[in-house]
Design a protein around this nucleic acid. Structure first.
Lengths: 222, 222
DNA sequence: GCGATCAAAATTATCTATAATTTTGATCTT
DNA sequence: AAGATCAAAATTATAGATAATTTTGATCGC
């Protein structure tokens, strides 16, 4: 191991694979072969198997006994499901975070909002959007809730990158603005209602498939 | 391996340990030593480590790199957190399940409700209560959502057994009845509102600690 | 040529062994 | 006797090897 490993090797492998799956570098349905991955990361397969269990828990991979692990597939119904869960849980988190929101936190969110609107590629937008949402809900201090929301954001990002691979046009997100304004005015109910609607905003985009045909691709864009 | 292993050994170990942690057989904070557990299950420690990763994802254990795994501790704030998450997600699931609820499903829930009210010990009550909730939300067919709810129920059960160890007195749960009635009448909003309140019902009970003092123990009893 | 069948190859799941880290406990100092 | 120090023991994390299962691909029959 050339790196001064802070975390365990299994954690590093899990992170690296998660990144690839989210970015779409590895296609859904692809088999993750432990010996190949072990070789690539210059370890044995034991930490690789542990990494698989983490990916499985995040919903990024599915494992069938004796038949190995493959990158999880998804469809429109799962996109909707994740959007609905995000809406429900982020609303809950925001309600609990509200009493702890300070001017400094709202300023941080404001910066994230600006970065979001200024983003010229999908990766930058996703990062800023995630930061916006995270900043507002993190002060709730509920670890289990935040961890679940993080996993949902990972799933969201995957759907997004799958549909928008690279093209992206800058656009002003009025919901973000409304949420921030409402919070600044102490109007939690408006903020919560806007967020609930916002997180379920699903965009459609035509995507050329391998066979040359065009199909609709869906992703959460809120 | 004497058992006709359908699942992988790691899965069986994870289940067995989860049961013990939920039942309170292993105290919070206890270290889970992989070699000891491997010896007990007559395997090597490799599947044990994989089982640990599963327990970690469920929130039943926490792992510190190079310092092993221990049974997760919890406090009142986590009980509240799990209750709030359950309320939010079960409401979401019920809304999506509602269109698929049939008379047969409602009858199954009715049976679970009766078992609940008739339960004379805490384990029987927990099983029936979980069955009641599961029956009503399962028809939503949202796998990720249902899996998350299941994990929350496991946490709930743990809190409950920690506070109520064995004593339990039969009581009629009016919320269960109201939810079923509302669903039978097609009044989803009443059912949802009652469920939202119900899942956050937290009971307190005096518990004698190891030192002989008495403290309050809290658990979700809905 | 197309599908079924079976053997070889690849892959998963597990075990045993080893290196590295942390915990334990006994000793020494004050 | 209380605290610090250090070595031994226990434990975690990883590597390498093995058994069992699945997948692949070539052969055979129709």
């Amino acid at each position: 191991m050339t790196k001064p490993a802070e975390d365990t090797i299994a954690v590093r492998i899990a992170r690296a694979l998660a990144e690839r799956i989210i970015a779409g570098t590895i296609e859904p349905g692809t088999r993750l072969r432990q010996d190949h991955i072990a070789e690539e990361f210059e370890t044995s397969h034991v930490p690789v198997r542990e990494a698989f269990r983490r990916l499985e828990a995040q919903g990024l991979a599915i494992s069938e006994p004796r038949r190995g692990v493959r990158v999880a597939s998804f469809d429109l119904s799962e996109v909707k499901e994740v959007a609905a869960m995000r809406a429900a849980l982020e609303v809950l988190a925001l309600r609990h975070a509200a009493p702890h929101l300070t001017a400094a936190i709202l300023d941080k969110a404001e910066q994230a909002r600006r970065d979001c609107d200024a983003a010229t590629d999908v990766r930058a937008w996703e990062e800023a959007n995630r930061r916006f949402h995270r900043t507002l809900v993190a002060p709730c201090g509920m670890k289990r809730l935040l961890a679940t929301i993080d996993d949902l954001h990972a799933a969201s990002a995957r759907f997004l990158f799958s549909a928008w691979r690279s093209e992206w046009e800058a656009r002003t997100d009025h919901d973000h603005r409304s949420i921030l304004n409402a919070l600044r005015n102490g109007d939690l109910e408006t903020a919560v209602a806007t967020l609930a609607r916002h997180a379920q905003w699903i965009g459609e985009r035509p995507v050329r498939t391998a066979s040359g045909a065009t199909r609709g691709a869906f992703a959460i864009v809120g």
